[in-house]
Simulated scan of single mutants.
Amino acid sequence: MISQLHYISQSNSEISHLKAIENALKAGCKWIQLRIKDEPLDFVLDAAIAARQLCNAYKAKLIINDYPEIAIEVKADGLHLGLQDMSIPAARAIVGDQMIIGGTANTLAHILLRVEEGADYIGLGPYRFTKTKKNLSPILGLAGYQSLIKEINYRDIKIPIIAIGGIELADISVISETGIYGVAVSGAINYAENQENIIAQINKKLENRL
């Protein structure tokens, strides 16, 4: 089952990806995406091995962003592919039929492509500007989600749609009203004074949607 709350790792000068992941796990996250860009392959692999151990300890799912071979090597639960990454069928040929594969989308055409490719879930965004991504797609905002979810429902598409991109706790109720399945967050958890409380509030808001 696809979680309604996805945590996407983020590092800065004060905290590493692994420490941020450990904090999120301790606070209650059960779906962790390791997203490391612009680093050597061996750096990503070492981080993925450590992240797998952490997720095992907390009985959480680990999703690797962008690296299918690393996802296989560390026995990750899933793989997430951005719009500039390889296609889902190409990745599926590497990781096999059992691994979860999610894909990013920004437009209806992207959504339809991801469905055709056989994605298990779609990360739809960005909701607003975020520093997490260097090459940011056009911002959707609330109106963008409303329009795209309407189109998805009209086509009777049932794939889980995860809202991504600069999402804060205060956004979740209004985003949920569009019919979105879940949210992916990073900074909202990383910079929270009480991460456990924030995660509990996010989960409660998402559960109330169903």
Results as ranks from 00 to 15, higher is better:
134 K>E: 14
119 A>W: 00
107 T>Q: 03
116 E>T: 15
96 G>K: 09
130 T>S: 07
95 V>K: 08
136 L>I: 15
100 I>Y: 09
129 F>A: 10
88 I>C: 02
118 G>K: 07
129 F>L: 12
129 F>Q: 09
111 I>L: 14
124 L>I: 02
101 I>K: 00
143 A>M: 13
95 V>W: 05
120 D>H: 11
88 I>R: 02
140 L>N: 02
107 T>D: 10
144 G>R: 14
129 F>K: 12
90 A>M: 10
94 I>F: 05
115 V>Q: 08
134 K>F: 11
133 K>F: 01
123 G>M: 01
128 R>K: 15
98 Q>W: 08
97 D>K: 14
109 A>G: 10
114 R>W: 02
137 S>K: 11
102 G>E: 00
90 A>D: 15
109 A>M: 09
99 M>G: 00
122 I>R: 00
93 A>I: 01
126 P>Y: 11
89 P>H: 15
106 N>V: 05
108 L>P: 01
117 E>A: 04
132 T>I: 15
116 E>I: 12
136 L>F: 05
88 I>F: 00
117 E>F: 03
141 G>E: 04
144 G>Q: 11
137 S>C: 11
114 R>F: 01
136 L>C: 10
125 G>A: 07
97 D>C: 09
135 N>I: 07
142 L>I: 15
116 E>Y: 09
99 M>Y: 00
117 E>R: 03
104 T>M: 03
112 L>H: 06
122 I>M: 04
118 G>R: 05
89 P>V: 06
94 I>Q: 10
91 A>F: 01
140 L>R: 10
105 A>W: 05
137 S>F: 07
132 T>M: 06
92 R>T: 04
109 A>L: 12
138 P>E: 09
91 A>K: 02
141 G>P: 03
133 K>T: 11
94 I>S: 01
125 G>H: 09
88 I>G: 01
141 G>C: 14
140 L>C: 06
111 I>E: 08
123 G>N: 07
144 G>L: 11
131 K>I: 04
105 A>M: 14
109 A>N: 14
128 R>P: 12
133 K>I: 08
113 L>T: 11
131 K>E: 14
89 P>M: 12
121 Y>N: 08
119 A>I: 01
103 G>M: 00
105 A>L: 10
143 A>E: 15
97 D>W: 01
